[in-house]
């Protein structure tokens, strides 16, 4: 990868149907995130080194992101605001910048 970052093209979405779908999905995403944040300490502590998926304000845990997603989608097929996160094995200070 060259040192210069590739060009990014920014474009606003204006199509009404797409806007409505995006807003509804975001609301579901926000609800799942709030649910996790309220229980974060306990969930993180219990599932280090594994993937969690939050869907329908419910927790699904697996060893791969695909498996966590599949379990969540099976239980909450209507929830398109689900998300998957990896819980690192250790609590270490992090530097993300590349």
């Amino acid at each position: 990868m060259a040192n210069q970052p590739p060009a990014i093209v920014m474009q606003e979405v204006t199509e009404p149907q797409e806007l409505a779908e995006a807003r509804a999905r975001r609301n579901r995403f926000d609800r799942n995130e709030a649910w996790l944040q309220a229980r974060a300490a306990e969930i993180y502590k219990c599932h280090r080194g594994r993937y969690i998926c939050i869907a329908g304000e419910d927790l699904f845990v697996a060893d791969t992101p695909e498996a966590a997603y599949a379990s969540a989608k099976s239980a909450h097929p209507e929830d398109d605001g689900l998300f998957v996160r990896y819980i690192p094995k250790e609590k270490l200070p992090r530097v993300y910048a590349d």
Partner: peptide, 8 residues
């Protein structure tokens, strides 16, 4: 509430 898309 409108999405902004970043294509790249």
């Amino acid at each position: 509430g409108a999405p902004v898309m970043f294509q790249g």
